[in-house]
Design a protein around this nucleic acid. Structure first.
Lengths: 338, 338
DNA sequence: CTGAAAGCGCTAACAC
DNA sequence: GTGTTAGCGCTTTCAG
């Protein structure tokens, strides 16, 4: 493994000069610079980022702390697409990504900042953590630059990127109302997700805008799980047959609702309209294909990385990005002809 | 940022002792050990892996070189599930993963070994690269421990994990033959993928076992792309109406064939049986749901990481793992009643 | 324009 | 058991 020392020896200069030449400083004689570059190539040199990181105290590395990188959540494409977006941006900017090992099963209960300090990452992106996750407090307390996905917290070192969940949910309700639906239920995620809180807000706003009262009995939590959503929906639809439309805080849960309806012999969309959220791949393949509020998951990741790198490089702009949502109308919603 | 030096000062010992105590050596007085541990905790110490890596010349980090982490391949869950599997195993073993930035668009045309040496990864996992990828030669030439996914190359420092693609393809053909199909076509990937070569072999073997001749005209390449597969299948089915069944080297391409059939007014499975490969999520949601050869993508990743770590830790066992496939019968295949 | 020397945080001989 | 010392590969003052 060749080092700058080797290069220095062969080129007949000092390591200092080698370092400067290779790092593109301009106070090096063009002759010597070229010679050094050539020798470096001849010797098949590649810099040791560990050594460099040690002295510079930064690593050109971004840490990634995500839930949803496991067998269970394979169905939910969300994390993957976010990751792709992050990867894309990070690649362009010549950083590398390290996926933190946040295995909780073992005894190694490392704190957030321990994790970051150990690996000397320059910054972190967090996705899929709950609002009551202990990491979250640490993030805010710590001074490590960090971008949260879908958690609207902001500070000197913390920014976030999310979609306009309030507006998205509102769009969904408005769509249903325009179709003539008056009795609209909601299958939400859970209280420990900001997106759920926001989507519920949007749901309420939508109802209010249409002059309909908000009925808490018609809102259940599906915990972003297809099967829980199915069970909850079965109960809901059985108990309140007057419901003609359901807005779900995720497509996966909407799939569960579709199943519930099917089990109960309720035809979608004829007797029940269903709107999802996310526009996951499955949405368009469901039967019937799902009307949904699309969010650009790839972009979510891309913007997160972009924002973080901006912070790291000191281009101090905003600390928050809000992406738009889009209503995708498919066949799971139709006019209500009661 | 506290260092062992700080701890040494506060605890009134030397850095050596601190280092030894913290690394669990047994030649440290229990009294001092406890004191050091306490001080370390008080000072909120976390080790600098960069410094440690520099001197130990290893990083407890595994590099990941994958294609398929981008917007385009989102539909193909493959990479994601493999990644999840890798992540799972790596977490258990207390390694971290770094996703290499292999952006080709920029001028930074780094070689494989440069990439690895720079980041000082202990080993690498490669997935989704073609047989003619220049990286591949380098991998074999280099001495960096490496596991290839779906590329059966083996050497002192190189191992691989793959599924039994020959057998898998054979299973598919046998299934179709048992249903009475005699005129079976194949939509393969492309020649630069080992899996394609193997699946073609299995296809031929299956035909031979059933006493059917192999007709090269009935094999086309869909390049693992839904749309290319659709176009190719349309041409194939139009030209050779005697074909009653198609075996596809990926589910995505099978989806394309389903579309082709639909466009041509050929009813699946009544007039045409279709078998896919992979068992991606979409397979069960397609209409009709796709009969396919399932491979455990998560396990593929998991085993790759396991094998690599075994190599790294010098537990020298085999260098190759072969996973089994399983025929999943759904509604895209049925008996042939010509 | 170039070099000598110090030091980033850590580990590992090698004394004592 | 514990401390001294050297050094991993690199960057960066500070002199010349």
């Amino acid at each position: 493994m060749t080092t700058i020392k080797d290069i220095a020896r062969v080129a007949g200069v000092s390591v200092t000069t080698v370092s400067r030449a290779l790092n593109g400083y301009h106070d090096v004689n063009e002759q010597t610079r070229q010679k050094i570059v050539r020798v470096a190539k001849d010797l098949n040199y590649s810099p040791n980022t560990l050594a460099r990181g040690l002295v510079l105290n930064k690593s050109k590395t971004i840490g990634l702390l995500v839930s949803g990188l496991n067998r269970q959540s394979a169905k939910d494409h969300f994390t993957f697409e976010v990751l792709s977006g992050i990867n894309e941006c990070v690649s362009e900017q010549d950083y590398d990504l390290v996926l933190f090992n946040t295995n909780t099963s073992k005894q190694r209960e490392k704190t957030y900042s321990q994790l970051c300090r150990e690996r000397r990452v320059d910054g972190v992106i967090l996705s899929g953590i709950k609002t009551d996750d202990p990491y979250l407090h640490e993030v805010v307390a710590s001074s490590i630059p960090c971008i949260l996905i879908d958690i609207p917290i902001q500070s000197d070192s913390v920014g976030y990127v999310t979609t306009d969940n309030v507006l998205g949910a509102k769009q969904a309700v408005e769509h249903l109302m325009q179709l003539g639906h008056r009795n609209i239920a909601m299958v939400n995620g859970h209280g420990q997700a900001f997106v759920s809180q926001h989507r519920l807000d949007g749901f309420k706003q939508g109802l209010a805008a249409g002059g309909r009262p908000y009925n808490p009995d018609w809102v259940v939590n599906g915990f972003f799980d297809e099967d829980i959503a199915r069970v909850e929906a079965e109960r809901l639809l059985t108990r309140y047959p007057e419901i003609t439309a359901v807005f779900c805080a995720s497509d996966l849960m909407a799939l569960g609702v579709l199943k519930a309806a099917n089990n109960l012999g309720i035809v979608v969309p004829k007797r029940l309209s269903v709107v999802g959220y996310d526009d996951i791949l499955l949405a368009s393949y469901a039967s019937p294909p799902l009307t949904t509020i699309a969010q650009d998951k790839f972009q979510l990741g891309y913007e997160a990385a972009k924002l973080l790198i901006r912070m790291l490089e000191g281009q101090d702009n905003s600390r928050a990005v809000l992406l738009e949502t889009e209503l995708i109308t498919r066949q799971s919603t139709t006019g209500n002809h009661v």
